[in-house]
């Protein structure tokens, strides 16, 4: 599994650096920030999981909670 992970890290870095090599067409100004899509994606996913974990505390119930 480790190879997979480090391979993925490598790909991520390559893609991030790719931003330097071409002119980005951006509609919104934030799109043209360096590596916007990369770190936005990362942050979103971490936030998603952390929020969902918190949410679980509220909404999780036993499997036959509804009793049918």
């Amino acid at each position: 599994m480790d190879q997979f992970f480090y391979g993925l890290v490598g790909i991520c870095i390559v893609l991030l650096l790719g931003d330097l090599l071409y002119h980005k067409h951006a509609t919104f100004s934030f799109e043209s920030w360096f590596g916007f899509f990369a770190w936005y994606g990362f942050i979103c996913c971490v936030a998603l999981v952390l929020l969902a974990k918190q949410m679980r505390k509220v909404v999780k119930r036993d499997e036959d909670y509804y009793g049918d």
Binding site: G41, C45, V49
Partner: peptide, 17 residues
């Protein structure tokens, strides 16, 4: 490129987590 960035870094987030 942007789409791949988005996807790859999301995958990275998953792996890290």
């Amino acid at each position: 490129v942007t789409q791949l960035q988005l996807l790859a870094w999301s995958a990275l987030a998953f792996s890290v987590l």
